[in-house]
Design a protein around this nucleic acid. Sequence first.
RNA 1: GUCCCCGUAGCUCAGUUGGAUAGAGCACAAGUUUCCUAAACUUGGGGCCGUAGGUUCAAAUCCUAUCGGGGACACCA
Length: 609
Amino acid sequence: MNLASMLTEKVHQVALSVFDEAISRGDQSALFEVKQSDRPDLADYQCNAAMSLARTLGKKPRDVASMLQEPLQKSFGKDAVVSIAGPGFINFRFSDTFLVEAAERNLQTPKQGYKEVVRPSRIMIDFGGPNIAKELHVGHLRPHLIGDALQRLMRFCGDVITSDIHMGDWGTPIGMIIAQLKKEKPSLGFFAEDSTVVSAFSLSIEELGNLYKRSKASWDESDEFKDEARLATEALQSGRIKGYRDLWKHLRDVSLDDVKEIYKRLDVTFDLWLGESDVNELLPIMMKDLEDRGISESSKGATIISAAKMGLDNSPPLMLQKGDGGYTYAATDLATIWDRVTNRGAEQIIYVVDNRQSQHFQQVFAAAHLAGYAQPTTMLLHAGHGTINGKDGKPFKTRDGKSVKLKDVLDIAVQKVRDEMPQPGEQGATAEEIEKITNQISMAAVKFQEYINSRNTDYAFDIDNFTTFDGKTGPYVQYAAVRCKAIINKASAANILDGEMVVSDKTEREMLLNLLRFPEAIETAYTRKEPSLVAAHGYGLAQIFSRFYNTLPVLNEPDQTIRASRLKMVSYVQNQMGACFSLLGLPEPSRMLRKDYGNQLKRVPRNEL
RNA sequence: GUCCCCGUAGCUCAGUUGGAUAGAGCACAAGUUUCCUAAACUUGGGGCCGUAGGUUCAAAUCCUAUCGGGGACACCA
């Protein structure tokens, strides 16, 4: 049960019965929205409807509120106190008994009170999009982590999700690499028009990365090279030179091996490992279709769809095929939509891609609907994300203008945690356990700092963000979860049983209320495609639990009833934290390890770490 | 030139369909451990919500203007 929706419905009902036809015209359901109170000292939930209603009813806000109060109070009975405050706020304060009952009813269900979507949708999520030959840099963190959290969230909510990595494996950069390699090693068998496969050729990811950089340099300084690269791209895409396909396949495999290594560390998964190249066969068919139906046109040697046809003002045309015959990523994206809708039955496609591409998606979506490749009911959504910036407000680069490798960031985070670990043998920890926990803590640090930021806005890169373990961080949340587990384990070892919950302290009450707000957090996160709301909920829960832990004894509580009650609360907290962890793909360590600094230890100041 | 995003505490950020006293983390200051792990907890200072108008009973939130930062605008993806 979602407390906020339950209250909203109730207010709506009551308002209809009190004011009937005066407010029944039009859809006013949003008007009655009840939300978490801004003033927890006064109320759990509040409703501002009386103030908005006052005008249409021609009454004073407080009068409207009083007219609603009595029937509302009656319908809640002893479950809640309904009161009026200020200019006309209707405040709800639940009774402790109600909270306990609601908690017992909700928290044992598989989804802890969350009700799955009524009708599941077949949804494809397109995220990741690593490019061949380019090592993942820190900027890639966002689409990967946000996309992964979204697929976890939407599956949890009941949709049928298929994730696709959609590799950038078919554009001009590949042509650039081929051209560069041809320049450097023309004797390789790939380059002959009638080539045979050359099996003895292989590149490491580092070599491939360097090759790409050299090709970029050639591209920047020579028009001749640009032509070579475009020609190579076209030859690859059309299949004119067979060896290019073999070479391309090798480059793709090398790049994939590299990204898979990182995905394993980050625990990011994909159902489909497709890329731009996978619609290659479809491209000529699509182009012909568009041309036959008069949707596309040719302009300055290229094939485009005009802005006017797409119904987009202030927009350039959408270019599908360049003057040299090569396809643009608009073409592959459009064909991919066709494929996903017709062959894979997608009812909804979500793209987790940098905000800077919003115009591109606006155009491609418009074109897809125009051409009928997407059904009118197909929902195409660009769930854009901000960039990771440097102090200058631009996408992060090191002083010498390079981007920071994602692998390096992960390694630094691991090293920082490792420095804090005890020696094998200390605290009963084996080397394997230390290694495992080190990885779990460091990955939580990296991932959580991403998830605590809003999807849509930029944030500043600071290596400390990824390697800070105090406060609003992954390790903080892990620590709280581990404490729950420790109490539960200890209780079970000592045969201490949990029992009926009673609220004996306001911290307990607040914690219960927090637990009951899980469905609200999930629902809003789902609607807004916003994983940070899940992270925020998990953090809030960890925070209230930490206060609980520090102020109220559980196993050491002398009163047996209270002890049993607190133990049950702890198990609910542990359960819900587990749900949040799995929604965000955060690892849950069995325990937290740290060097024993002794009693007088004082933590090393951050800036000396 | 057109369009999009952002401007909130010293720093990094929440605050979404307008409501009560604008929140959190870090940093800073002072405390808490014979007790379930101190990566924790408690307390404190700190804000003309970029600026100026407007709409409203009510504006960080909506509108207009303006300043500042970032981004996108046909042969890169």
